[in-house]
Amino acid sequence: MAPRGRTPALPASPEERETAVTETTVLIVDDLPLQRSGFRMLLESNTDTSVVGEASHGAEAVRLAAALKPDVVLMDIRMPGMDGIEATRRIVESGGRSRVLVLTTFDLDAYVYAALRAGASGFLLKDALPQDLISGIRAVASGDAVVAPALTKRLLDAYIDSAPTTPDAETDVDERLAVLTDREREVMEAVARGLTNREIAEQLVLSESTIKTHVSKILTKIDARDRVHAVIIAYETGLVSSGRTGRG
């Protein structure tokens, strides 16, 4: 009889096989055992997320990320020894497959900005609803980026305040945006304002799949690693400014 699955370990039903194949692996990084335990319970209660390890500080996170190669590293920022920002930088610079989703609190805007520059693919508040955390992990694992709505404007405003405005930067702007079509610039501007693909589709009267295709092409053309990086480039190039950070 021909084998029913890719390997003998895979479940027999097509639905179960699909779930097994698309399972998202997560490394939890937090210095508080109770916090790690809570995240583990939540993630393991879902059939499409699996915890492959836990780390209590940044150095351990870097080591385990290299060894376990999780899809997503759920990263705390403030930890003893190596903090989450440096750990994020090292994980991203290693060139591995793991993407970092940072968890923060309202009083850590400066740290969030630093983690953004270090290469994090998303930011959520520690008091996020369970379904929002799961959705954020899925989004980051799929190559998207996520930023908690409550942080978006403050984060972008913080970036605007420190963004370079030198003539060299302005020259670089034209070169980066020149590769985009008018429609792609429009979509990129909407992304920079924090709109989701669905919201952009409604605004431009296009299908969500069309917007997703535009975003994918934009990231490739401007050499951005994800949506968060695209937002940085949008502000660096002057495509959007502090007076246009609102949603809509």
Rank of each mutant, 00 (worst) to 15 (best):
T7Y: 08
P8F: 13
A9S: 09
A9I: 02
L10K: 01
P11K: 07
A12F: 03
R17W: 01
R17H: 05
T19Y: 01
T19Q: 10
T22P: 00
E23G: 01
T24E: 02
T24Q: 01
T24Y: 01
L27F: 10
D31C: 10
D31K: 06
D31R: 10
L34D: 10
Q35E: 10
G38V: 09
F39K: 06
L42S: 06
L43Y: 02
E44F: 11
T49R: 04
V51I: 06
E54L: 08
H57L: 12
G58M: 11
G58L: 09
G58N: 11
L68S: 06
L68T: 09
V72C: 06
M75E: 06
D76Q: 07
D76I: 06
G81S: 12
E86W: 01
R89N: 12
R89G: 08
I91M: 15
E93A: 15
S94R: 10
S98A: 15
R99S: 07
R99K: 14
D107W: 00
V112L: 00
Y113K: 03
A114P: 00
R117A: 00
G122F: 05
L125C: 07
K126T: 11
D127H: 07
L129Y: 05
G136V: 08
I137W: 03
A139E: 14
A139L: 12
A139Y: 00
A141L: 01
A141M: 04
S142T: 05
G143E: 08
D144G: 05
A145V: 02
A148G: 11
T152I: 00
K153S: 14
R154N: 10
A158D: 08
T165P: 02
P167E: 11
A169T: 14
E170R: 14
V173K: 08
D174I: 08
T181F: 09
R183Y: 09
R193W: 05
R193I: 03
G194T: 07
R198S: 14
A201T: 04
E202Y: 04
E202L: 13
Q203W: 02
L206V: 14
S209N: 04
S209W: 00
T213G: 03
H214S: 09
S216F: 03
I222E: 04
D226H: 14
V231L: 04
V240Q: 09
S241M: 02
G243V: 09
G246S: 11
G246K: 14
